[in-house]
């Protein structure tokens, strides 16, 4: 049984725009799954259909084997949803928003009370529980939506851009929280534009573009396909021109103290550093230009590398 099973899902809007062109997607129970894609790729439409806010044109969606067409209520009861945009009543107090959501899922008031306190404490909102939601900061509002999505202890949690606009310290604490939720058995589907986040958290992923799934594989398998990396080198000397080096290194002069170099994955950096050292150039420090997944993502979207066979961890 899959946590989520999508078959031949299509959505054509009334203006004729084909947002989903017959996608197939399977997410294993207990997985931490990334659904990635550029803006307008079809992610939100897909999530909207799963959460039954958007009517599909054709195809099927099953949540833990409950078909949305024939067993909608049971399917919904297994799903927790944190949308990208704030969709709570800003005039309601924090704890009331969560308690109401629990009530909609039929959770008894005593359980709602206990779980609300647990979630608000875990997410650092307990002190704000009596504030109206409009008085919260952006990051707090995001955490409020996570708490709301978890009040009925869903088996499948969809997080649509959960850390958008959240500072790095808070983002990391939210990552820890999500990992813990996943460790306890909740399947999580994450969409994010922070690909570092997806790379660190998710075991499997799908990339959607122009309404089609262009990758559906494990994170490990995808990262294996990356055959080059870009490093940024900070040089002590003043660089007037691009140093000449031998070997498979593509150098680029960024400014008089900075070099960028593309190197094949199997190639050691030692050779390059020695060559630069021989030319009297001293390297102060270096870093990866972008994270690996980001590089792959851009390549895939620009159709630079071939699709890999489907493989999930």
């Amino acid at each position: 049984m899959y946590a989520l099973e999508i078959s031949q899902l299509r959505k054509t809007y009334s203006n004729g725009f084909e947002a989903l062109k017959g996608i197939d997607l399977r997410v294993n129970k207990g997985d931490f799954f990334a659904l990635l894609g550029p803006n307008g790729a079809g992610k939100s439409t897909c999530i909207g259909i799963i959460s039954s806010l958007i009517n599909k044109s054709s195809g099927s969606v099953k949540i833990f084997d409950h078909d949305l067409d024939t067993d909608l209520i049971r399917a919904k009861s297994r799903l927790g949803m944190m949308p990208q945009e704030f969709n709570f009543n800003i005039f309601e107090p924090v704890q009331e928003i969560i308690a109401n959501q629990g009530g909609y899922y039929g959770v008894s008031s005593s359980d709602v009370k206990k779980r609300t306190e647990y979630l608000l404490r875990e997410l650092g909102l307990w002190d704000k529980r009596e504030l109206q939601a409009r008085d919260l900061s952006g990051g707090m509002k995001r955490r409020l939506m996570i708490a709301r999505a978890l009040i009925h202890q869903p088996d499948l949690l969809i997080l649509d851009e959960p850390t958008a606009g959240v500072d790095i310290e808070l983002r990391r604490s939210m990552w820890d929280f999500m990992r813990e939720i996943n460790r306890q058995g909740t399947t999580i589907i994450l969409t994010t534009h922070y690909l570092e986040e997806a790379e660190q958290m998710c075991r499997n992923l799908a990339i959607i573009d122009h309404g089609e799934i262009i990758q559906h594989t494990s994170m490990k398998a995808l990262l294996k396909t990356l055959n080059s990396e870009t490093f940024v080198l900070y040089v002590n000397n003043n660089l007037k021109q691009l140093p000449q080096v031998k070997g498979p290194f593509a150098l680029n002069l960024v400014d008089e103290h900075t070099l960028e170099v593309d190197i094949p994955k199997e190639q050691s950096l030692n050779d390059l550093i020695m060559q630069l050292d021989n030319q009297g150039l001293k390297i102060d420090s270096m870093r990866n230009k972008v994270n690996r997944l980001e590089e792959l993502f851009v390549s895939l979207i620009n159709d630079k590398i071939p699709q890999q066979p489907q493989e999930q961890a």
Partner: peptide, 15 residues
Amino acid sequence: AKFSRHIEEMLVSPI
């Protein structure tokens, strides 16, 4: 509820 989209709280719930 429609305007501020909190109607979605009910629409995604098993009600």
